[in-house]
Computed example of a mutant assay.
Amino acid sequence: MALTPDDVVTKQFQHVRFKEGFDPDEVDDFLDEIVVEWRKSIAEADELRAKLAAYESGAEAPSAPVAVIEQAPAAPVAEVIEVGQGSTAPAAASAGIIELAQRLHDEHVAEGIAQRDKLIADAQAQAATIVSDAETKGREEIARLDKERSILENRITELRNFERDYRAQLRGYIEGKLRDLETTGTTSGSTPVSAIGL
């Protein structure tokens, strides 16, 4: 099936996600320019066919042939199309437009792949940096906690030793006082309670 200007006008493109694309209005304007030029070339080809048919039938002398139709100035590639080969000019124009569209498509796909690969590489580098930073901070935190644990264990040991020594001293003191009390009690066992002041 041949591509017509109406096919270009009614063509709907899929919206892409996660990557940049062309401005849809700019693409529509460019396609409108292509359609206008395409319709001109089809009209001129039809006119030339009619003149050729009239000339072949001998009804009319040929006028000056239309030699060149230039593509719209907004087109990225300025191509010159020879008209006068009958129905091959619209087909050549169609083939040129399709080739241009395919080339643009391939360029955009390649650009998208390159951008995707760059984003993936950047994300992987960023992830590696984040993991490395987290591991470094984790090691530093573990070292700090180990040092703090060691300090606390030393402090606990000191407190246990202090408690043990304090208990021993307290026991010695209490036992000494009990001995003193017993000694005092045996020597003053005949002293009445009222004389002691109790």
Rank of each mutant, 00 (worst) to 15 (best):
T10L: 13
P65C: 06
Q115R: 15
L170T: 07
P5Y: 03
P5G: 05
A123P: 01
I151V: 11
A78Y: 02
E135G: 01
Q126P: 00
I120Y: 12
R116V: 03
L198F: 03
E140F: 07
F30P: 00
E107C: 10
E153G: 01
R149F: 06
I34F: 09
E141Y: 09
K19T: 05
F18L: 07
K118Y: 08
A2N: 08
G172Q: 11
G185K: 11
H105C: 12
D6V: 11
D133I: 06
E148G: 02
A50N: 08
F18K: 05
D32T: 11
V80T: 08
S57H: 14
P76Y: 13
I156S: 04
D28A: 10
T186E: 15
T4H: 08
A125I: 03
G189K: 15
A50M: 08
G176Y: 07
T136D: 09
D29H: 13
G86R: 06
P24A: 13
E20M: 09
P73K: 04
L145E: 02
T136N: 12
I34S: 01
K11R: 15
V16N: 10
K19R: 15
N154T: 10
A45D: 01
A54E: 14
A93Y: 01
A43M: 12
R139M: 10
A74K: 06
K11E: 13
K40Q: 07
N161K: 11
I113W: 05
V66K: 00
G138T: 10
L48W: 01
P76L: 14
S132G: 02
R49M: 02
E47H: 07
K19V: 12
I97G: 00
R179T: 10
T187C: 10
I113S: 08
T4S: 10
V16S: 13
D29C: 10
A110Q: 13
D146P: 00
L159D: 02
P5K: 02
H108F: 15
A143V: 04
P62A: 08
G21V: 01
A75D: 04
Y55H: 12
V109S: 06
G84A: 00
D6Q: 15
K40A: 09
T183C: 09
P62Y: 06
D165Q: 04
H105P: 00
F162C: 04
E140Y: 05
L48P: 00
F162V: 11
A64D: 12
D28I: 07
A43L: 08
R167S: 08
L119A: 13
E175W: 13
E70H: 09
E60L: 14
G185N: 11
A195N: 13
E182D: 14
A121S: 09
T186Y: 13
D46K: 04
L31V: 08
A114Q: 04
E135V: 08
R49E: 03
K177L: 13
K177Q: 09
K51F: 01
T4N: 09
A45C: 15
A95Q: 12
I120K: 14
D122W: 02
T157G: 09
N161S: 06
L178Q: 12
E44S: 07
